[in-house]
Simulated scan of single mutants.
Amino acid sequence: MRPSSSKLTFHKMHGLGNDFVIVDARQHAVTMTDELVRALANRRTGIGCDQLIQLEPSQEADFAMRIFNADGSEVEACGNAARCVTQLVGHEAQIATTGGTISGTPDDTGATLDMGEPRFDWDTIPLAYAMDTTNMPVRWEELTNPIAVNIGNPHVIFFVEDTASVDLARLGPIVENDPLFPERINVNVATVESDGSITLRVWERGTGLTRACGTGACATTVAAVRRKLVSGRETTVHLPGGDLAISWEPGQEVRMTGPAAHVFTGEIELDDFL
């Protein structure tokens, strides 16, 4: 059902340039179709965003967060969005997603999240068939021997000498849509720097090249720890939009700290987009 009024209030926020339209539907339900998501996310004729986030009531947590990509597809988790939502509500919260429950604590500039424990089994990524997810015997041109991690949503990580040299705009959609990944996949190319930090670029499933991906930074840090490339106690991940601090040790939850920014609050007539 839709609210009795066709007016819809929204918040525009971003985490390191990964931008969101956030709709609070905890009091008044909003039916978010893929067509409506695409219309709102359109940067020329809509509000414009990488993802649309809808807050809903939850019996298991303080509230639920649904995540829709700009193409209308619904996905399981988004770390940058979770930081923005935590900053928006302004208090410590348990946030239910279809990828698991996230704990968020706001601060003056952003939030810290406990993202849960990563998953590594081939059928939890998921892959189409069994293989070692720590050193996958597959390649797409120069992208070879990746590692797969599920951090609430699926990621494949390639460690390369220079992230800038990879034509991710071309290779990203090829990997994303390969039959090996029945639910498609987020594609990360990463370089471990001499100081132990990680430089990362991400092709995000259903969105494309993005300035930042929180779950990608988490998954890549986990992958680097598993490959013994970093210690994991606290790793700085450099993304095109800025830096995130990620920490993880085997058997523990992944912890992420980073900024979130409120851009503006607006109101639209839903009928204009239906």
Rank of each mutant, 00 (worst) to 15 (best):
G99P: 09
A148N: 03
S194C: 00
V166I: 06
N177A: 10
V187M: 03
H155D: 13
S194A: 13
M131T: 15
A169G: 13
A111Q: 05
A219S: 15
P182K: 06
D167R: 02
T133H: 07
G152K: 10
D178P: 14
I185V: 11
P137A: 13
G152N: 06
T105D: 06
R119T: 06
H238N: 15
P137T: 07
A224Q: 11
V225G: 09
V156R: 07
R201L: 13
D162M: 05
P182V: 02
T112A: 09
T235C: 10
P137W: 11
A111L: 04
A111P: 00
T134I: 00
E141A: 03
P173W: 05
R170H: 06
E234M: 15
T199N: 13
R226W: 00
V160F: 04
T210G: 03
L168N: 00
D132P: 01
E234D: 07
I95W: 15
N177V: 02
T210C: 02
I147P: 00
S165M: 01
A111D: 04
P106L: 08
I198W: 15
A164Q: 15
D178Q: 10
L127F: 14
I174W: 03
P137L: 06
I198E: 09
R201G: 05
I198M: 07
Q94P: 00
G208Y: 01
Y129Q: 14
E141K: 02
G208I: 02
I174Y: 02
R211W: 10
T235D: 09
G208K: 01
V175Y: 04
A164I: 02
G216L: 09
T105K: 15
V160A: 04
S103N: 14
V192F: 08
V175T: 04
V237K: 08
N150C: 11
Y129N: 05
D132C: 09
G206A: 08
V230R: 07
N145Y: 07
T220H: 11
G232D: 06
M115V: 13
V187A: 01
T235Q: 10
I95D: 10
P154K: 08
V187Y: 01
E176S: 06
W203Q: 01
L171D: 01
D132W: 10
I102V: 15
S103P: 00
I198N: 08
E142F: 01
V138N: 02
D114M: 07
D162F: 03
T112I: 13
E142H: 03
C213V: 08
G110N: 03
S194N: 08
I151Q: 15
D121T: 14
S165I: 00
M131P: 10
F159P: 12
N145W: 06
H238Q: 15
T105N: 12
D162P: 04
T109F: 12
T124P: 02
D114Q: 14
